[in-house]
Design a protein around this nucleic acid. Structure first.
Lengths: 119, 119
DNA sequence: TTGACATATTCCTGTATGGGTATATATTAC
DNA sequence: GTAATATATACCCATACAGGAATATGTCAA
């Protein structure tokens, strides 16, 4: 089997940095494809293709108006990502606490223990 | 260019469901490779390969003991994912509010307007 | 109709995947 | 030393990418 399709789920879709850039841009409001092309300095077909992926996982919504297509962010699927990542918050906060303890400990030694500084 | 390497960053590394499963398992504590193999019902080489990817992006840490290697979760890089996703929280909460408004509006019509129900 | 414009699709190519299987490496036991 | 165990690596294969270039589709204007 190869890697899962980029359209398989939100996690695969957002793995690509360009697509995250597009989402970020769209978070500031609806944009026509050409706007995105110029704002991000990308080639038009590439943008269309990335938008297709984002559409497939429901991260953007299109509104057609004449020959233009306005893309809008649909943030809802990002909750899955946030929920998934947040589930580990306690762990990295613990890590930070441990680091904090460690730094405190170092400082204790620095202040009260023998001085090993070179200078 | 092809898709970015799975080891390119955390976003690419966690795109694969199996790797998320491994992280989840490790969140309950350190595990030897074979433990992971049996807990998740995967083939040993596949587990080793996924662990390699997770190591490359610093999501796990190894401790060697005899012929066993105990892998431990390093949650810190997941902050990047959480931070990225959380930045959109306001947007999906707004979406939810709008949906809420819409549902309220529907109910208004249901209660006070003409009844269009088929039954 | 013809042409300009906006967007999507197709085709190409190099690259990297993830699973399967076999094998290498390292450690422990006998 | 030899075998057993734990893990990592190498190899094969089918798949799917992302970017580039060319082209198709659809819409508006003259």
């Amino acid at each position: 089997m190869a890697r899962a399709a980029t359209t398989a789920d939100v996690f695969n879709a957002i793995a690509e940095g360009v697509r995250r850039d597009i989402l970020h841009l769209l978070s500031r409001g609806e944009r026509a494809v050409n706007d995105i092309v110029h704002a991000l300095g990308l080639a038009q077909p590439q943008v269309s293709k990335h938008l297709r992926v984002l559409r497939a996982v429901n991260l953007v919504v299109v509104r057609e108006e004449g020959r233009q297509r306005f893309y809008r962010l649909n943030p809802v699927p990002l909750r899955d990502v946030a929920d998934w990542a947040e589930q580990y918050r306690q762990f990295w906060e613990q890590s930070f606490d441990r680091l904090d303890d460690y730094l405190r400990e170092l400082q204790q030694k620095e202040t009260h223990g023998p001085d090993h500084r070179k200078t």
